[in-house]
């Protein structure tokens, strides 16, 4: 009799273990296995479809070709870095030698002007997009707060925002290009015109989601909280700092995430057309180049662009988690 009960309890223990391990297993499946299966199937169909698409630059690149290009892009980067290193060493030697002959001689230091590698261009793109986004944020967030606080201003500006919001960067670009070349004249320009053009286009397109979300966030603050502020007779600045800003931080961040996504998309197009160094220009140059590797290299760039966009979004999300008091709003 006692034997059977022991057996029974042992059974339940093993059952429980199985249940727990099943739970863990299903979590692993959801988090890892399913995405891997999805990606595998995608790669499979990609390689099949690629083989049957013939372009004037050869067959469409499959996964293999793209991986090969990744490694050759990396090799090119290493080679270029070595060249640069060698250039600087030579320059230093030359200057040292001249200085030995003539102590008054001040060595000329020139920067290496080799071509930008793929990885340099990624960094350039990240820099440009960040600048454009920051310019947009500096304009959009105060404007959005002001609009949220002032119903009349909101009614006045909202139609403009709604009309400009859906405009494609390609439409802005020619205008921005012409305006920049007309107004930005300087003998010793701090930044290149193409950089400025890309930056302004990115700002113009990523402005609107932030303006809209910020103004909605500010205008939908709980009226009880506003009453608290009124009863305390908080001065305007304190009111904004202590009540309005914290209350609308979740919405401001939602707008910033949307805007950063837009900015990254717009940047690639802007760099392509403005011929500003960066991933967009890389794609365009490869397209113009038209070698047999070009399509694979463009495809590699596409994957990198997507991956970076994803990482940027995640970074914004993490920032939101850090800054916002409302943890529930910072979800995917």
């Amino acid at each position: 009799m006692s034997l059977t009960t022991v057996n029974a309890s042992q059974l339940t223990v093993t059952e429980q273990v199985m249940k727990v391990s099943k739970n863990v297993l299903s979590k692993i499946t959801n988090a890892m296995l399913l995405p891997i299966i999805g990606i595998t199937i995608f790669i499979f169909f990609w390689s099949i479809a690629a083989q049957s698409i013939h372009t004037s630059l050869g067959t469409f690149p499959g996964p293999n070709a793209v991986v090969k290009q990744f490694s050759s892009l990396y090799d090119e980067h290493v080679v270029e870095r070595e060249k640069a290193e060698a250039f600087y060493q030579r320059q230093e030697k030359r200057n040292a030698a001249k200085q030995e002959k003539n102590p008054d001689y001040v060595g000329k230091i020139r920067a290496y002007t080799g071509k930008e590698t793929f990885f340099d261009q990624i960094l350039t793109s990240l820099f440009t997009v960040t600048c454009g986004f920051l310019v947009a944020a500096i304009i959009a967030i105060p404007l959005g707060i002001w609009m949220g606080l002032n119903k009349r201003l909101n009614s006045a500006i909202n139609p403009i925002v709604q009309i400009f919001k859906p405009v494609s960067p390609l439409a802005w670009l020619p205008l921005v290009t012409m305006v920049v070349s007309a107004l930005y004249v300087s003998d010793d320009p701090m930044v290149s015109k193409s950089f400025l053009t890309s930056l302004i286009t990115v700002s113009l397109c990523s402005l609107w989601p932030m303006v809209i979300n910020t103004s909605i966030g500010v205008s939908s603050i709980d009226s009880d909280l506003l009453n608290v502020s009124k009863v305390l007779r908080l001065p305007t600045f304190t009111h904004i700092q202590k009540i309005v800003l914290p209350a609308s931080v979740p919405m401001i961040f939602t707008g910033m995430r949307l805007s950063f996504g837009v900015a990254w998309m717009v940047l690639i197009a802007a760099e392509m057309l403005a011929q500003n160094p960066g991933l967009g220009k890389f794609v365009w140059d490869e397209f113009q180049n038209g070698s047999s590797d070009s399509l694979a290299r463009i495809m590699a760039a596409v994957i990198v662009i997507g991956f970076i966009g994803f990482l940027l979004d995640r970074a914004m999300l993490e920032l939101q988690r850090k800054v916002s008091w409302d943890k529930s709003s910072a979800s995917v």
Binding site: V231, P246, A247
Partner: peptide, 19 residues
């Protein structure tokens, strides 16, 4: 004729600043 701290209000749903 305007709100002020000499007439403090306790609101029905506490209305504390959640942050």
């Amino acid at each position: 004729n305007e709100p002020g701290p000499e007439r403090a209000v306790v609101f029905q749903n506490h209305s504390l600043l959640p942050w």
